[in-house]
Design a binder for these strands. Structure first.
Length: 518
DNA sequence: CATGCCGGGGT
DNA sequence: ACCCCGGCATG
């Protein structure tokens, strides 16, 4: 109560320290400080308050960002938010960030859900991804419901058709059944043409290599196309913006189908391949190289099979016989195989090369978060598979083609954009906080090892592994949100220990400095 | 080692 | 809510 003896208090901060350690007889160093003689708090308090005001402003910014996320489930939005959020700083901001990230995740999930729903409807009872469904369901949202309803209307009609067609096409595989109006078909054509053109024209066009799988998967589902791995899509669903949910958007699967009709008369492997190739290219992270000595290969996308053949016919046959089990009709091709293989361009040097280049190149930044899903996913998956695959190719391997999505990549034009986002790599090197959400994806890898699981021939059970993967992913939120550590000088440095009184409260409390926010 | 902060704990 | 500190992470 009594002001401590001036003698002592007068001493510089150092004094305090010295005394502190030995003992805190009176009440602790802090008190001492206050007692320093500086009028208890008045001055200090005033200054601080001002600071606080400033801080508040910052905080507001943060808040806004967060809100944005809430309002829209749009993936893009998220990114935007991230940018600013990152900058935001200090204490309160931190909290906001956390929330934001969480919401983000939620959003993803829910989007995925939508997709799934759509697909499920179209697909009808195709037991495609039961597991995934369950998982998602828990996260389900009211919003989702709304969207679902909308889609239903339009979908309902198409569903019937789709199913019928599907049956015709293939009984055991979930081929993208969706069929759309002639207009859409045309659109697809056009799109395909454009894609091809762009590809041939400029290598730049590339899109995020990485998660094609996931991103695509999302879209596919929507299209009612391939059901299989839900898990992967789960996280990535974000890549698929609300657009996908819209029925109007052409679903990838559709386009794929649409192509067939034209060429179908005679299984034009080349034609299809080309189209796919185009898509693939998108996937391929290394567009520029392709000019050089690129060798075109056809890779089987069947889940545990990475078989690579030099000819489309070969790969088709491979798929037909090994995966589709159509030994007898080896000659006949309904085009279904097309979905299970993809055209890949290899540098004459070596495939690995290309792959490796991918990872290192873009990721430089993202390196910070190695686990980040984006880059590695597709690329890695493919390569390793290819190698291993050859051996694995066995009936067992026959599981739904995980990679299948890749194929669909054709429709990349749709998916691509979103995927690009992942460019998120941009997010930033420092965005430690970001890494969090991203990390989740790493899961993908897990999936690979898991693949060994035997699955049902039909290609439905596949998801299991994926789902599994997803589950394992949980690590996401785990990352510590710890602030990067402000670069600028903080109160401590600015005022020094001697003037601790001048520090902002936060600094005094050893909390994130509120005055010199970074 | 100095800083900057987080997570806790005390009042 | 305010005030602090132990301890960890980072440069």
């Amino acid at each position: 109560m009594f002001p401590p003896p001036l003698t002592i208090s007068t001493g510089p901060a150092s004094m305090r320290l010295m005394q502190g350690p030995p003992t805190r007889p009176e009440g602790g160093g802090s008190r001492r400080r206050r007692g320093l003689g500086r009028a208890p708090a008045k001055p200090r308090g005033g200054a601080e308050e001002e600071d606080d005001d400033d801080e508040d402003e910052d905080e507001e910014v943060v808040v806004e960002v967060v809100d944005g996320d809430d309002d829209d489930e749009d993936g893009d939005e998220r990114f935007v938010a991230l940018g600013p959020g990152r900058a935001l700083p200090k204490g309160p901001a931190r909290g906001a960030l956390k929330v934001g990230s969480i919401k983000r995740e939620m959003t993803f999930t829910f989007q995925t859900e939508d997709l799934k729903r759509d697909s499920s409807k179209k697909m009808s009872h195709q037991h495609l991804f039961p597991l995934a469904m369950e998982e998602d369901v828990k996260t389900a949202d009211t919003k989702k419901a709304n969207r679902a309803l909308d889609h239903e209307k339009e979908n309902t009609r198409s569903i019937c058709l789709l199913e019928q067609k599907r049956k015709v096409v293939s009984s055991n595989i979930d081929v993208p059944p969706a069929r759309k109006s002639s207009e859409e078909l045309d659109m697809d054509k056009v799109t395909a043409a454009m894609v091809l053109t762009s590809l041939s024209t400029s290598p730049l066009v590339r899109s995020p290599p990485v998660r094609q799988n996931e991103g695509l998967s999302g879209s596919w589902k929507e299209g009612g196309g391939v059901p299989s791995s839900t898990s992967s899509s789960g996280y990535w669903s974000w890549s698929a913006p609300s657009d996908q949910s819209n029925p109007s958007t052409p679903s990838p699967p559709l386009s794929a189908d649409s192509f067939k009709p034209f060429r179908s008369p005679a299984p034009p492997d080349d034609g299809i391949d080309e189209a796919e190739a185009g898509n693939l290219l998108f996937d391929e992270p290394i567009p520029r190289k392709r000019k050089n000595s690129m060798k075109v290969m056809f890779k089987c996308l069947w889940k545990n099979c990475g078989k690579v053949l030099s000819t489309a016919v070969g790969i088709q046959k491979h798929i037909r016989t090994i995966h589709l089990g159509r030994v007898g009709e080896s000659d006949y091709s309904d085009g279904e195989e097309d979905f299970y293989y993809t055209e890949i361009k290899l540098n004459t040097d070596s495939v690995a090369d290309g792959l490796s280049s991918l990872a290192p190149v873009s990721p430089s930044q993202s390196l910070a978060s190695p686990p980040t899903f984006p880059i590695p996913d597709s690329s890695r998956t493919e390569t390793p598979c290819a190698k291993t695959e050859t051996k694995l190719m066995t009936p067992l391997s026959r599981s739904a083609p995980t990679t299948l999505y890749l194929v669909h990549t054709d429709h990349a034009y749709q998916a691509t954009p979103p995927v690009t986002i992942p460019g998120a790599a941009k997010f930033t090197p420092n965005g430690s906080s970001f890494s969090i959400s991203w990390q989740s994806p790493p899961v993908t890898f897990t999936g690979i090892p898991v693949s060994p699981t035997h699955s049902h021939p039909v290609g439905t059970g596949e998801q299991r592994p994926h789902t599994h993967t997803v589950l394992s992913s949980p690590p996401r939120g785990t990352v510590s949100l710890r602030k990067p550590r402000g670069e600028g000088k903080k109160c401590r440095k600015v005022y020094g220990m001697e003037n601790r009184d001048m520090w902002c409260t936060a600094c005094r409390w050893k909390k994130a400095c509120q005055r010199f926010t970074d």
